[in-house]
Measured scan of single mutants.
Amino acid sequence: MTVRVDGVDYEFSSLEEAVRFALKMAKSKGAEVQLHNGTFHVE
């Protein structure tokens, strides 16, 4: 599972870890999280 934040990809071994990271980053940026074909994008 890959989480992309500001064009940088972060790899996670589990969906749970990836979701937690994506939500944490989105909250800190006041951004939204989108899921596309198994890849999260924080914008």
Rank of each mutant, 00 (worst) to 15 (best):
R20G: 03
A22F: 08
S13M: 09
V3D: 00
H36K: 11
S14N: 08
F21P: 00
Y10G: 00
H41K: 06
D6G: 07
E32K: 14
H41P: 10
Q34H: 15
H36A: 06
K29D: 07
G38F: 12
V5S: 02
F40A: 09
T2R: 12
D6P: 01
G30I: 05
E17M: 06
M1W: 15
R20H: 06
V5M: 05
T39K: 13
R20K: 10
S28V: 14
H36R: 14
V33Q: 03
A22Q: 02
F12C: 12
L35F: 14
L35N: 04
Q34W: 15
D6A: 06
G38T: 05
E43C: 15
A26Q: 04
D6N: 10
K27L: 14
F12K: 00
Q34L: 12
F21C: 08
H41S: 05
N37C: 15
V33T: 02
S13E: 09
K27V: 12
E17N: 03
S13I: 07
A31C: 15
K27G: 10
F40C: 15
G7P: 00
D6C: 15
F40P: 08
K29T: 12
E32N: 13
E11G: 07
E16M: 11
R4Y: 04
E32V: 14
S28Y: 13
V8D: 02
E11M: 13
H41I: 14
K24D: 09
R20T: 07
E43G: 14
H41W: 14
E16K: 10
F21L: 01
V5G: 00
G7Q: 03
G38S: 04
M25C: 15
T39I: 15
V19D: 01
M25K: 02
L15N: 04
V33D: 02
D9L: 12
F12P: 00
A26N: 02
D9I: 12
G30A: 06
T39V: 15
L15R: 11
E16N: 06
H36W: 11
V33M: 05
G30T: 06
A18S: 01
E11I: 13
A26F: 08
L35G: 04
F40T: 09
A31T: 11
R4N: 05
L15Y: 13
V5Y: 06
K29P: 10
K29M: 14
M1I: 13
A26H: 04
E11S: 12
T2H: 09
V5Q: 01
G7C: 15
L15G: 03
H36E: 05
E32I: 14
G30E: 06
Q34C: 15
S14R: 04
K24S: 10
G7T: 02
V33G: 03
K29L: 14
K29W: 12
G38L: 10
T39F: 12
K27M: 13
S28F: 12
M1Y: 15
G30H: 10
E43N: 11
E11L: 13
N37A: 06
V3K: 00
F21G: 00
M25I: 09
V19A: 07
R4T: 09
G7Y: 03
A31D: 04
K24G: 05
T2K: 12
K29Y: 12
V42I: 08
F40Y: 07
M1S: 05
T39P: 08
T2P: 01
G30W: 08
A22L: 07
E32F: 13
S13Q: 09
A22I: 07
Q34T: 14
T2V: 10
T2L: 09
L23G: 02
A31P: 03
A22Y: 08
M25Y: 05
Q34N: 11
H41C: 15
A18D: 00
A22N: 00
H41Q: 07
L35R: 04
T39Y: 12
E17D: 10
E11T: 13
H36F: 13
Y10P: 00
Q34I: 14
S13T: 11
A26G: 04
K24H: 11
D9H: 06
V3M: 02
V3L: 02
T39Q: 12
T39E: 10
M1A: 11
G7W: 03
F21R: 01
K24R: 11
S28R: 12
E43V: 15
E11Y: 14
S14D: 06
A22K: 02
A22D: 00
A18L: 04
F40M: 12
E17R: 05
L35D: 03
E16D: 09
D9Q: 06
E17I: 03
M25V: 07
K24N: 09
V33W: 05
S14L: 04
E16F: 12
G7N: 05
E32L: 13
D6H: 05
S14Y: 02
D9P: 06
V8I: 11
F21E: 01
M25N: 02
L23R: 10
N37M: 07
E32A: 11
V3H: 01
D6K: 03
R4W: 08
G7R: 02
K27T: 12
S28G: 10
H41T: 08
S28K: 13
G38M: 08
R20M: 10
V33I: 11
V5P: 01
S14W: 03
F40H: 08
R4M: 04
A22T: 02
V3P: 00
V8K: 09
H41L: 13
E32P: 06
A31I: 09
T2W: 14
E11K: 14
V33H: 03
A18Y: 02
G7I: 02
V19N: 03
Q34P: 03
F12I: 01
H41D: 09
S14T: 12
G38H: 09
L23C: 15
H36Q: 07
S28L: 14
V42F: 07
A18G: 02
G38E: 05
T2G: 02
S14Q: 03
K29E: 09
M1E: 01
V19S: 04
L15P: 07
D9E: 09
M25G: 01
G7V: 01
G7K: 02
Q34D: 05
Y10V: 02
F40L: 15
F40S: 07
S13W: 10
A22E: 01
M25E: 03
F21T: 00
E16Q: 10
F40N: 07
V33F: 04
N37V: 08
L35W: 13
